[in-house]
Simulated scan of single mutants.
Amino acid sequence: MRRMGAMGAAVAALALAGTALAAGASTAGAAPATASTATACPTGWGSGVKGGVTAGAVPLKDIRTGKHDCFDRMVFDVPGGGDIGYYVQYVDRLHQAGSGDYIPVAGGAILEVRVAAPSYDPETGAATYPGKVGRPLPGVDITGYRTFRDTRFAGSFEGETQIGLGVRARLPFRVTQLTDRLVVDVAHNWTGSR
């Protein structure tokens, strides 16, 4: 009997693997898709107060939002701001910093977001973000979002910009500091399911 060399064994292994793949491919088309291929959503964010102190005088340039499978996202762009300070919490009612004026925000719960970046240039006083107090955020359309319900600009006071974010319910959220950006994600639910 003749022995197979290393090359012959490799060829035989590839042939067997090809046969197994062909058999799997022919049955895979007939099998229904399973839920095990779904990606799990992150959990453990919580709904308590979150804050990161970093003083800054670099102005806010833009606020934008995005929809994801597991959460809705709001991004604050502060070019040149480095790590941006913030304070985010659920509130019963949104009151403008400084004046204390009430600003109505629609939704089952309200997230107050304070970002350590004014909506104006501190040196010239010129507006760098076109928000109007008590109005929805300019250029932000949250139609069709699963969690976000309303956005309200509350103005800037003492170097901070204040936003009211109306959400469907008091849901877990996370805040991520990135260079020149602050990201607020609000989960679609507490369970981590889509």
Rank of each mutant, 00 (worst) to 15 (best):
D72C: 03
Y86Q: 01
Q162N: 02
A20I: 12
D121N: 15
G159M: 03
K132W: 10
A31S: 04
C41W: 10
A38E: 15
D62S: 06
Q162P: 08
T27L: 09
T39Q: 10
A57S: 14
T176Q: 13
G139M: 07
T143C: 03
T151E: 01
V53K: 07
G100D: 02
T37K: 10
G51S: 10
M7S: 13
M4P: 09
V133T: 14
T27G: 01
G134K: 08
E112H: 06
H188E: 00
R146T: 06
G18A: 14
T161I: 03
Y120G: 04
A126E: 09
T191I: 05
A23Q: 09
T34V: 15
P42I: 09
G5R: 13
R3P: 14
V113S: 03
A28C: 07
D180R: 06
Q162C: 04
A169I: 09
V140L: 04
S193Y: 15
A126Y: 12
Q177Y: 12
N189M: 14
R181G: 00
G85H: 14
A15V: 14
K132M: 04
V11N: 05
Q177E: 12
L111I: 15
D77Q: 14
A35W: 14
A31C: 04
Q96D: 04
R152K: 11
V53R: 07
L14V: 08
T147V: 13
T54D: 07
G139I: 07
R194L: 05
G29C: 03
Y102W: 11
Q96Y: 11
P130E: 04
C70N: 01
R93H: 12
Y102F: 08
G5L: 11
P136R: 05
I84M: 06
Y87K: 02
S47P: 08
A13P: 06
L14A: 06
P118R: 08
Q89G: 02
N189T: 11
P172N: 07
Q177V: 12
Q162A: 02
M74R: 10
F71D: 00
G164P: 05
K50F: 15
V175I: 10
E160F: 14
V115P: 02
R64S: 15
W45I: 04
G155Y: 09
A57R: 12
G125V: 12
G81W: 15
A109C: 07
G98Y: 13
R174E: 08
T39Y: 14
A116L: 11
I142M: 01
G144V: 01
E160I: 10
R170A: 12
A10P: 04
T151I: 01
P59Q: 05
L137N: 04
G66W: 03
P118C: 05
Y86C: 01
G8F: 11
V140K: 05
S26E: 06
A127Q: 11
Q162E: 05
G155I: 02
P138T: 00
V140W: 10
G108F: 14
A38L: 15
P42T: 08
F157D: 00
G139A: 05
V183Q: 07
I110T: 14
F157H: 05
T143L: 08
I110W: 12
Q96S: 06
G52S: 09
A55M: 15
I110D: 03
D92M: 07
S36E: 13
A12Q: 03
R170C: 05
A17E: 07
I103V: 15
A30Y: 12
V115C: 02
A106K: 03
L60W: 11
I103T: 11
T128K: 10
C70T: 03
